[in-house]
Amino acid sequence: MTQHTFKSAKRRYFRAFWPLMALYVIIVLAGSFGLNQLDPEPKWLQATLAIACAVPVIATLLVMLRYVSETDEYTRLVQLKGFAWGGVITVSGIFIVGFLQLFHVIENFEVFWFGPAFFIAYGLSTFLLGGRDCL
């Protein structure tokens, strides 16, 4: 068994998760506000802010992976199944929307929404597989 218990792993997860979410909200709000003040916006600043917004999300994914490696074996199994189902559902959506675009059935679709879609699919799958405690 790992040296971390389920509870200590969960504590470590939330201690990192909430500050990262707060940072994400601050960067997105500050970025949008900052860009509105600049007219025309410099391309390099737009690119920097766009990447900066993604950094807390990427860090959150890494924190989730750390939680999976530190938590107890049953929760790890449920989490990994949740990741797998989340991936299958999201990638299926990407292919469906992709072909709909290629065949000119739908117009442009913002790729961004696949990110939140993955988190929703992963969260729902994990909840259905293991219940509230495994989230």
């Binding site: 218990t5 389920f6 449920v78 495994c134």
Partner: peptide, 26 residues
């Protein structure tokens, strides 16, 4: 029991109901 073993309550429930077989260390 979960606290004493350092696992989640869901783990104990899954083992008791036969939904999950624990590893050898557990």
């Amino acid at each position: 029991l979960a606290d004493q073993l350092g696992v989640s309550r869901q783990s104990i429930n899954a083992i008791e109901t036969g939904k999950y077989d624990p590893s050898l260390p557990l």
